[in-house]
Nucleic acid binder design. Structure first.
Length: 346
DNA sequence: AACTAGCCCAACCGCCTCACG
DNA sequence: GCGTGAGGCGGTTGGGCTAGT
């Protein structure tokens, strides 16, 4: 049972199209329209299946197709719409005249996705990355750095002493980890823990001051590791962190909160410095506006394109592109984060 | 110059939806 | 309501190109 693929018939050509085939297809459609794609190949004198002809026409031969690099405006639109619709390439293509869904899809996979990843943004959720490897790398980096600070009399000899800019980076990364864990709170039916504070969990990154976290002690990387909040090695971590639901299994929120308080003396120095190190904003939103995943089916793409209140990763990107200082700052941080923690050679 | 690795993108594959009998 | 065919969509592939060694 089931329908046989349209290209199963023997002898039908596959693979790249020749200029002659392109000409035949173009001539036929220009004079007759495509009509039934199934019957078109025979009528046009092509030894191809209808599906192949349709793809060739819609993705390449159509006269209104725009070629060449994507403009900044097009990139904005793609990221903006993708943050709402996800991988609905055909829907995205309807908002970009002259661009095909295939072209947009390719451009996303080869350029935009990587750009977002490099900025520490999950290209799927358009939120700061919470994937485990990224977290573990950051936490281990922090662990190494904070351990070096605790051992400051020795750290010079160990080559671990951080200079001022490194400290600023470390504090920023601490903010990010804290934000990520706070967002986990929201995913674990513990919303009430934060509701009374009426604060966007991303506010610390939004306004660059992390006001919420100055009031509470920070867990620094080594402490996360000691408490098992973050697994010590990626290989241990399968099933512990779920990007959609947060930490699972080994992570206990009450333990986390309790130890959070009990470790205040260890980490307070990092907190104290935060107001002196304003960070460039990661997202230019206000509390409560970080709602990029709207209900798709009822969303008019034209509407969200004109909305200015909804924060998307595009805004992050825009901010980064427009703000030279910020650009260097984030790029430096993100690109200097090693894929594995620095070796502890003692 | 030769080789390799990575990137890019056109094209294919398989599934889904919709229209029609 | 059901089966079938056609078109549409998103994921994936693989060949060509290019930069690096």
């Amino acid at each position: 049972m089931g329908r046989s693929p349209c290209c199963d018939e023997n002898g039908l050509k596959k693979g790249p199209w020749t200029p002659e085939e392109d000409q035949k297809l173009t001539d036929y459609i220009n004079s007759h329209g495509h009509g039934s794609w199934r019957s078109l190949p025979k009528l046009a004198g092509l030894n191809r299946c209808g599906k192949s002809c349709r793809l060739r026409w819609t993705n390449y031969l159509r006269p209104d197709i725009k070629r060449g690099r994507f403009s900044e405006d097009e990139e904005r639109k793609i990221i903006s719409i993708h943050s709402v619709l996800g991988n609905k390439w055909s829907r995205i293509a309807t908002q970009l005249p002259g661009r095909t869904d295939n072209e947009i899809k390719n451009y996303w996979n080869t350029h935009l996705r990587k750009k977002l990843l490099h900025m520490g943004i999950d290209p799927t959720t358009h939120k700061p990355r919470t994937d485990l490897n990224h977290l573990v790398n950051l936490s281990q980096l922090l662990g190494a750095a904070s351990f070096g600070n605790l051992l400051s009399p020795w750290s010079s000899a160990l080559g671990l002493q951080a200079d001022a800019s490194q400290l600023a980076r470390i504090q920023l990364l601490q903010n990010m980890l804290q934000v990520i864990n706070t967002s986990t709170l929201l995913n674990m039916d513990n919303v009430g823990l934060l509701q009374n504070q009426n604060l966007n969990p991303f506010e610390g990154l939004v306004n660059g001051t992390s006001t919420l976290y100055q009031k509470e002690p920070l867990l620094i990387g080594q402490e996360y590791l000691n408490q098992g909040v973050i697994p010590k090695a990626p290989s241990d971590s399968q099933g512990i962190f779920n990007s959609s639901s947060g930490f699972e299994g080994q992570f206990n929120m009450e333990d986390f909160l309790g130890s959070n308080n009990s470790t205040s003396s260890l980490s307070s120095s990092a907190c104290e410095n935060q107001t002196e190190n304003p960070m460039p904003a990661l997202v230019s939103g206000s509390p409560g506006t970080y709602t990029v995943n709207q209900v798709e089916s009822k969303t008019d793409p034209n509407q969200f394109l004109t909305q200015s209140s909804t924060s998307t990763s595009f805004e992050v990107w825009d901010k980064l592109k427009d703000d030279e200082i910020s650009d260097f700052y984030w790029k430096d941080i993100l690109e200097s984060t090693p894929s594995s923690p620095p070796p502890m050679s003692w």
